[in-house]
Design a protein around this nucleic acid. Structure first.
Lengths: 185, 185
DNA sequence: CCGCTCATGTAACTGGTTACATGATTTA
DNA sequence: TAAATCATGTAACCAGTTACATGAGCGG
């Protein structure tokens, strides 16, 4: 008896995107990922094209090649088996890798600020604050292109992005304060 | 002229850990990662042992094999070149992959809640809230084992974990409210 | 006509995962 | 003494990255 196949985070996320966008091409998926304010999904061709072929082989997607004039276009659609896989990924139950603190590259770096000189630490915090400003702008422009109102869950994701930036800014402020409190070195 | 070698996130994080823990073995690094409340770094043997050998070949770590009785122990130490690499990774300038919203597997899943029935959505939100409770407990026990006071940056990381869970709980509450507002389906 | 974007892919590489192997030491 | 943990690794696999190739359509 075959144990049910496991799919990667990227695979399941892609599955979800195809479901959400409706029939779409790997190119559409890639563009969507690249425009997102998250660097998590690079959307590189070498990742997405083979991935969607894999999902097709597993019966989670079906492809239909069209041809407007001489331009070919391959559209994938989620099958009912694909829907089931998507639901299983979302949970409940939540898979262990979903039960975690979120991954923040700024936190990873802040952990080792002790290796820097006090001046460098202050510079780093400033740079990090600027980076969050930049992210904030990206989230905002993303929110505008994908005008909420579509569905409440897209709105929830946008809201998550907003809150995420705000919270991390507040955290950075705390870090900055803890720096000045030891500023006599 | 060789362009300066790039290192992966895991490589740099490991470098930082070795710097922070002082001379230590791959086993120590693995244990540290596995006990962390984050699932980001699995700390699998097949990842860490070759990785630290790589860092040694690149001159960022030096190894010293000891032998207490019959038990062998290999200890790595960060070189000055390793310190430089660590500082470069931390920044500034922050590398592009650090300038991003944080990665939250709950957000990734919430995006596609539209595929579920209203009842399933409510179950999911409950499960997610429970998951965050679980994470909160893990963060707390982590905080206790790595008693802050060591350095302010460890404290900052612990604080980040605390805030992270709180913020996401607040976000989940919002999601839940947006569900009930459409509960007539 | 040149360059840009659209669009689909492949090839080579490599970092990380899972699983296994080995042996010493501690604990029930 | 059997099982669990400490401790070090290797081998096979595979997903994702970078870089390249190809060709259609479009704007200046």
């Amino acid at each position: 008896m075959r144990t049910p196949r496991k799919h990667s985070e990227l695979e399941c996320f892609t599955l979800g995107l195809v479901w959400q966008l409706g029939p779409c091409s790997p190119y559409d998926v890639r563009r969507h990922m690249q425009q997102s304010p998250s660097t998590q999904w690079s959307g590189s061709a070498g990742a997405i094209y083979p991935l969607m072929q894999r999902l097709q082989r597993r019966g989670l997607l079906v492809a239909k090649s069209e041809r407007n004039g001489k331009r070919r276009r391959k559209e994938y659609t989620v099958t009912s088996k694909g829907i089931a896989a998507l639901k299983e990924w979302i949970g409940p139950p939540l898979s262990p890798e979903a039960v975690t603190v979120s991954y923040d590259p700024l936190r990873s770096r802040a952990r080792f600020l002790g290796v820097m000189t006090p001046a460098q630490r202050r510079e780093w915090v400033e740079a990090a604050a600027a980076a969050l400003q930049e992210v904030s702008r990206r989230v905002e422009s993303w929110r505008q292109t994908y005008a909420t109102g579509d569905d409440p869950f897209t709105a929830a994701v946008n809201r998550h992005g907003e809150l995420d930036v705000q919270w991390r800014q507040a955290w950075l402020d705390e870090v900055q304060n803890s720096l000045t409190s030891i500023h006599k070195e």
